[in-house]
């Protein structure tokens, strides 16, 4: 009994310590003065985490928009309210699906790759040798990746929403025959720029920070063996998915829950 209690306490301390370490890590890398080549390093990472994730995000967005329209239509048509389809598609995408699904895809596509890349750099002593050359790997390796993720995911989320709305249009208007004017005008009447698009963007900024942070920290903190890398990669995907879904609930409650 005492042993279990002590074990629990030790686990708790470990978790707190890891949180503290990762917080320091985030502060040191994001607040530090960027290195001289910071810009080109950032561009390279933007290309990697942003441009190369575009295809998967856009394709998923298109399909999710189409499915939303199809499902929504079958329900709405029972109430004779199929002209509200645009509103339904746009609101579900902007408030929930785009930030969350884009963040999950991002964690799987870019987050795991970031962890593995940094982990491999650590395992092959590249980070240590960088330190010995007198270059801080937090600034040189970590900071560009963090900033790239932070900028890239909101842009990907916007892309997801746009193509999702278009997918809903394809299915709802072109295929199921919802009147085009009511698709757009219902959407425009109900979607608020600040409350829906703005809040969705705030969500995706938070997710971007959390997912990239987890990915980069797991890579930086892992045990430098092949087993350690595979574990850390898995952890990145699991932790960031959980964090995204949990935070989504909290943020939704704060933004749309009416507790102000």
């Amino acid at each position: 009994m005492m042993g279990q209690l002590r074990g629990l306490g030790r686990r708790g301390c470990d978790v707190l310590e890891a949180l503290g370490r990762s917080g320091l890590f985030l502060g040191q890398s994001m607040l530090g003065v960027p290195s001289r080549e910071g810009w080109s390093l950032w561009v390279r990472q933007m290309h990697f985490v942003g441009v190369l994730s575009l295809a998967i995000v856009l394709v998923s967005g298109l399909f999710i928009g189409m499915v939303l329209a199809l499902q929504g239509y079958t329900i709405l048509v029972d109430f004779g309210a199929e002209q509200a389809l645009g509103q339904m598609v746009a609101l579900s995408l902007l408030r929930e699906l785009s930030p969350v699904v884009a963040a999950l895809l991002f964690a799987g596509r870019a987050g795991s790759a970031l962890t593995a890349e940094i982990g491999l750099m650590k395992a092959t002593e590249q980070l240590t040798s960088m330190e010995m050359i007198g270059v801080d790997p937090l600034r040189r390796v970590v900071a560009p990746r963090l900033w790239a993720g932070f900028v890239a995911l909101p842009l990907l989320t916007v892309g997801f929403s746009v193509i999702g709305v278009y997918g809903g249009y394809l299915v709802g208007v072109e295929w199921l025959g919802v009147f085009e004017g009511s698709y757009w005008s219902n959407m425009q009447a109900s979607v608020g720029f600040v409350e829906d698009i703005g809040n969705g963007l705030v969500k995706s900024l938070v997710f971007a920070l959390v997912v990239t942070w987890i990915a980069v920290f797991q890579g930086y903190d892992l045990v430098p063996t092949s087993e350690g890398i595979s574990r850390a990669t898995t952890r990145t995907v699991v932790y960031s998915s959980l964090a995204v879904l949990g935070l989504d609930f909290v943020l939704t409650a704060l933004m749309f829950g009416g507790f102000s």
């Binding site: 092959t124 240590t128 010995m132």
Partner: peptide, 19 residues
């Protein structure tokens, strides 16, 4: 410390070249 390290060179067991 980083300033001091500029005056040191270290050859790692694995080479540790930037891949």
């Amino acid at each position: 410390l980083f300033r001091l390290r500029r005056r040191m060179g270290m050859l790692f067991q694995s080479g540790a070249l930037f891949s």
